[in-house]
Each structure stands twice: as C-alpha cells, then as structure tokens.
Simulated assay, not measured.
Amino acid sequence: MENKKPLSIIKIGGNIIDNPSELKQFLNDFSKIEGHKVLVHGGGKSATKMAKSIGLVPQMIDGRRITDAPMLEVAVMIYAGQINKNIVAQLQALETNAMGFSGADGNLIQSVKRNHPTIDYGFVGDVQKINTSLLETLISNEIVPVFCAITHDKNGQLLNTNADTIASELAIALSAVFEVTLNYCFEKPGVLYDSEDDSSVIPTMDTALYSELKTKGAIHSGMIPKLDNCFNSLSKGVQKIRIGHHQMLQNTNSVCTTIQL
C-alpha cells in the first residue's frame, strides 16, 4: 500500500484571533509548515463582543454556546465573514494559497441540529459527514482550506458548530487518506495541572490521567470537550495530537501536551 502523505490540521482559538500581533505571528508560523495543511478557527470572543454591542446576551453551558437565531446571524457574520476572510487574505500575503470555507461550501461539512434531552442549544450543529473526496482534491492541488465554525444541514440551515469538534472530525475523516497530525493551538503552553500556573504543563495526557484530573476538578469547562475530541480522534485513526502554544509548530523542542490513548 502506498505510504500516506502527512497532513497537519491546526485549530486556533479566540485568544489568538483577538490579538492582531499574535495572529500575525501564528499565521507566519503556519505558512512555514511544510507539506499539506488545513486551518480551523474559532472566534467566540469576537462574536460575543459583537453580540453585546447590539444588545444580545450570549449564553454558554459547559463551554458550549447556545445559539438562537439572532446569535446565529452574528456568528455567521463574524466567523464566516470577517475572521475567515481576514485570515485568508493574510495567508495570501505569506504566499500560502488559502481558501476560506464554511461547511456549506462544496457540502464539505454536513451537520444535524443538536437534539438534547434537557437543553435547547438552538442552531447548534453536530457533525455528521465530511466530504473527504473534495477535500482530498483541494489539498492535493496545494489549496490550504481555512474552515470557520459554521456548518449546514443540507436543508438550507446554517449551524454554529464547535471549532474543536470540526478540527477533530476533519482529522478523523482525512486520516483515511493522509497521515494526520492534529494541533490545537491556544494562548497557553499546553494542558496545565494548575490553570493559573503556565509552568505546570502536563507533557503527556492519557485517558487515565484525564479521568483523574476531571474528578479532581483540575480540568474543567472548555478543556473537557477539547480533550474528549482528542481521545475520540486518536481512537479513530488520527496519528498524533498536540495541544499548546503555536510556537510548537516551528520549534520541535517547544513545551506542549501530547495526547495519547
């Protein structure tokens, strides 16, 4: 069997996006990654800021956003519009031939509206299907896909979807045709034993340690869905997963957390 080509999937969070100089440095690092790559971005803080400016009150439950119709309009405008196109334009300036996508474009990511027994999440999507063949064609033609956190249900409805989950589902689907490394980049150097102490990075996280730290409350809120996604991805064919500051993309000795089963 032919060896699979390596593919780097990188997800960045709101704290990088909200800081223009940090974003510029990240995109510079990202542009230098050799070989095939995909970028997935969140942008929750920008959406929250915009929502508040027009009188909406953002709601979160366990690190996940409740998305009513007005909030969906804001999310689409900020994620798929302002943030996505700004990133694509900056990557073009760095000689990286990026193309921005929502899940609706090319039917690349199809979702279903979340059906929860007790919580109405509104227009929130859970990923059902990735158009792997179209993505493989794009990537093989040296296009760098840049995904925002908006998907669709194939019935005309856009859906707000957790960006960590999108990165995870893309990694799982594309691991059928590439050797995938998934990197979650945020403002911290890795997953921390103590969220107030940046020097307390956990170098390697496995399921046993994860369970123990969740029980102690050391790992909580938004880090829980992130790590759940990581372990799910590894169990379904993703080669390697790292969490840390984007410095790890260019510096192999950079401190970060490697996730393993």
Score class of each variant (00 low, 15 high):
80 A>T: 03
191 V>K: 01
156 G>R: 02
131 N>L: 11
16 I>G: 08
261 L>G: 13
102 S>G: 05
239 Q>H: 10
61 I>E: 12
40 V>W: 12
94 L>H: 04
160 N>T: 06
145 P>L: 09
185 C>V: 10
152 H>L: 06
179 E>I: 09
125 G>Q: 06
213 L>D: 00
155 N>F: 11
14 G>C: 06
16 I>Q: 01
225 P>H: 07
4 K>R: 12
12 I>E: 02
32 K>D: 09
233 S>Y: 00
87 I>W: 01
225 P>S: 03
147 F>Q: 05
15 N>H: 07
88 V>L: 04
211 S>Y: 06
205 M>T: 03
185 C>G: 07
227 L>W: 02
255 V>G: 03
157 Q>V: 11
128 Q>C: 09
68 D>W: 04
170 L>P: 06
173 A>G: 05
2 E>H: 12
112 V>F: 12
227 L>K: 02
164 D>Q: 00
73 E>I: 04
233 S>M: 03
90 Q>P: 06
256 C>D: 02
144 V>H: 10
132 T>D: 15
214 K>V: 12
154 K>M: 15
40 V>L: 04
5 K>Y: 11
145 P>F: 14
188 K>E: 07
248 M>T: 10
261 L>C: 13
135 L>D: 13
111 S>W: 00
250 Q>I: 08
151 T>F: 11
126 D>R: 08
68 D>M: 05
218 A>W: 03
203 P>R: 05
197 D>S: 10
117 P>R: 06
158 L>H: 15
45 K>E: 13
252 T>L: 09
111 S>V: 10
184 Y>T: 08
89 A>Q: 12
249 L>M: 00
2 E>A: 14
53 S>P: 08
96 T>L: 04
191 V>D: 12
179 E>F: 04
44 G>A: 00
230 C>H: 00
206 D>M: 04
42 G>C: 06
248 M>P: 00
91 L>V: 02
86 N>V: 13
5 K>L: 11
40 V>S: 04
172 I>L: 10
17 I>D: 11
207 T>E: 15
157 Q>R: 04
247 Q>C: 08
174 L>G: 05
111 S>P: 02
254 S>M: 08
248 M>F: 05
245 H>D: 01
128 Q>R: 10
90 Q>R: 07
237 G>I: 00
206 D>H: 13
213 L>P: 03
253 N>Q: 13
114 R>C: 09
15 N>V: 10
51 A>R: 03
247 Q>P: 03
93 A>H: 14
223 M>K: 03
72 L>G: 11
59 Q>H: 12
183 N>Q: 15
39 L>N: 09
154 K>S: 14
196 E>M: 05
171 A>E: 06
137 T>A: 08
120 D>G: 08
240 K>I: 01
119 I>M: 06
192 L>R: 07
10 I>T: 07
160 N>P: 02
104 A>I: 10
110 Q>N: 13
128 Q>Y: 11
124 V>Q: 09
158 L>S: 10
75 A>M: 11
151 T>H: 03
149 A>N: 15
108 L>H: 01
245 H>E: 00
70 P>E: 02
82 Q>N: 15
118 T>V: 14
11 K>P: 05
229 N>D: 04
213 L>Y: 00
170 L>A: 04
